[in-house]
Amino acid sequence: MLLSALIGTLEQGLVYGIMALGVYITYRILHFADLTVDGSFPLGAAVAARFIAAGGSPLMGTVLAMAAGMLAGLTTGFLNTKLKISGLLSGILTMTALYSVNLRIMGRANIPLLRKPTLVSWFGERGMAPWVLFLITLVLIKILLDLFLKTEIGFAIRATGDNEQMIRSCGVNTDGMKLVGLGLANCLVALSGALVAQYQGFADVGMGVGTVVAGLASVIAGQALVRFHGLGWATTGVIVGSLIYRVAIFAALRLGLAPTDLKLITAVLVVLALSGPVWSSSLAKFGGGKRRATNIPAA
């Protein structure tokens, strides 16, 4: 009983880890707080569920979901780079618009996928638990992402997040790099949404609420736990963070917290993590210690 609950928790950690990698791309690499995620996650679920419910192949539905997610990211990028709307607001606008779009795609607020062939059921018929599917997908994406970030375009995207002036004076169109990064990130987020829908057996128009904060919690937790330098470790950290985050939620529920309080708890945790530098410096001042000034970037 406990074992199967733990496996379920790890499965969630893995499948939401794909979303967390997307958040990692925008938040840590591009330094772009992208709220599109709360809309592109259910978008992925909606596209996949609608396609599968209508009798389409689950693989095709998942691929379509990724394409839709990419479009959502590109929309935010367009608002930000071409129409010069702030990054935060661009994401909010796309997210809000996506709520209507998702309802349009689904045609109603909820699409059940019971007894429909899904990627999860395809694995199940071959005797494999969902975590096998999620683990394969996640590891594959992690490896591809690590490789991508070491390519010329990967360099340019990282530099765009680090020092836009510098990379522009190296001849790179930084607007283009932001579009690529946002598109890629939301493609992963939508993939995660599509897999979650197939995993839980339904898509719901409200399933995106709090996604970006959960993603941030995973990214931040991973960064705190995996402190080795280098890109391969950073993405490993995100995955570890996602697993830890789901375990923490599992533990909180076990301790008797209501599921409806989880988003509040997550938000508080993220606030604490983000304000960590403020706390530690005022603590250090309080204790008379010297504040450490390091200029060593974490990414």
Binding site: F148, T151, F155, C170, V172
Partner: peptide
């Protein structure tokens, strides 16, 4: 990145 300032960026190793 500086060396490639004049060339088109691709998916080859940086």
């Amino acid at each position: 990145m500086a060396m490639k300032r004049a060339s088109r960026l691709g998916l080859t190793p940086g």
